[in-house]
Simulated scan of single mutants.
Amino acid sequence: MNCKGVIFDLDGTLIDTLEDLTASMNDALVKLGCPRRNREECRRMIGNGLAKFAERALPENRKDQRDELMKTMVSHYQQHCLVQAVPYERIQHVVQTLGNKGIRIAVLTNKNQKPAEAIVNYFWNKGVFDPVVGVCDGRKVKPDPESTLDILKQWKLTASEVIFIGDSEVDIQTANAAGVACVGCEWGFRDKKQLLAAGAKNLIQKPIQILDFFD
């Protein structure tokens, strides 16, 4: 594979953010008088952006409070997004090695832009991932391929020269829509069965295996 660039998902791929996301969602739910969600429920709800996460977390008879829940959750999460967040095993070594090889690397996430940048720039020097693309006004979320194609254009690379690494069906759909090869990672928020059901053709079990594509 003549790979010159890697687009990474963030949550569940580079960083385990599940504890902080669960805590912030539950803080918001409690403030609205709604039942809390456990860690595994939140794991299944994450992936399609904050709006979907909030919609899924609310009881059926409270869906009209989605925007209020989102606003409350974001306020808490922006202050607490690095409480328990941690990089997956050896992922920092993988990123450094790719950089040393001259491979372009980016982050494309359905997380809001501000916390996405805060998390990436906390664990890596600014500019290691170029660009870091999160959700902001007017930007389409994954699985729409627009942001992936924008990254290819910025890098001046073709789809055949880039791979997309992510942990969910959303990432697989995004890569397929953009014509980019996808590598599904089993250490994230979805398991092997779910990734295969979503059409994953390349699966890896540990972050260090990413480097096998660049030998």
Rank of each mutant, 00 (worst) to 15 (best):
R139W: 09
A197T: 11
M70D: 07
D9G: 05
K71W: 07
K111P: 02
F53R: 01
P115L: 09
I7A: 03
P131G: 01
E60A: 13
K153Q: 12
C34R: 05
C81Y: 08
A28F: 07
P207D: 11
G179C: 01
A57M: 05
A106L: 00
D150I: 03
L211H: 15
A116F: 12
T13P: 02
K63R: 11
S168F: 13
D215C: 12
R44P: 01
G5P: 00
D16L: 06
R39S: 07
V183Q: 02
Q209M: 07
A178T: 06
S168R: 12
L21A: 12
I172K: 02
L10R: 12
P131Q: 04
L10V: 06
D20E: 08
F214Q: 14
E19G: 04
A197S: 12
F213A: 13
V30D: 13
L98K: 11
Q209P: 01
F8V: 03
L58S: 12
V95H: 08
N48D: 11
Q84Y: 15
C42L: 09
V141T: 08
Y77S: 06
H80S: 02
H93N: 14
V86A: 14
R66I: 04
G138L: 00
A106I: 02
R39E: 10
A116T: 07
D171I: 14
L195T: 15
S24E: 10
F129I: 05
S75Q: 12
A116V: 09
G166K: 11
V128Q: 04
V83H: 15
T158D: 12
C34E: 05
D215P: 14
M25W: 04
R39T: 05
Q209L: 04
Q65T: 00
I172F: 03
R104Q: 03
I165N: 10
V128K: 01
A200D: 04
K114R: 05
V162F: 06
K153D: 13
D27L: 08
K111H: 04
E169D: 10
A51I: 05
K101N: 09
G127D: 11
R37M: 09
G138D: 03
I208H: 05
N121D: 10
L32D: 14
T72S: 08
I91L: 09
A159F: 03
W187V: 06
Q84V: 01
P143N: 03
L108A: 01
A23W: 10
T174N: 03
L98E: 13
P145E: 05
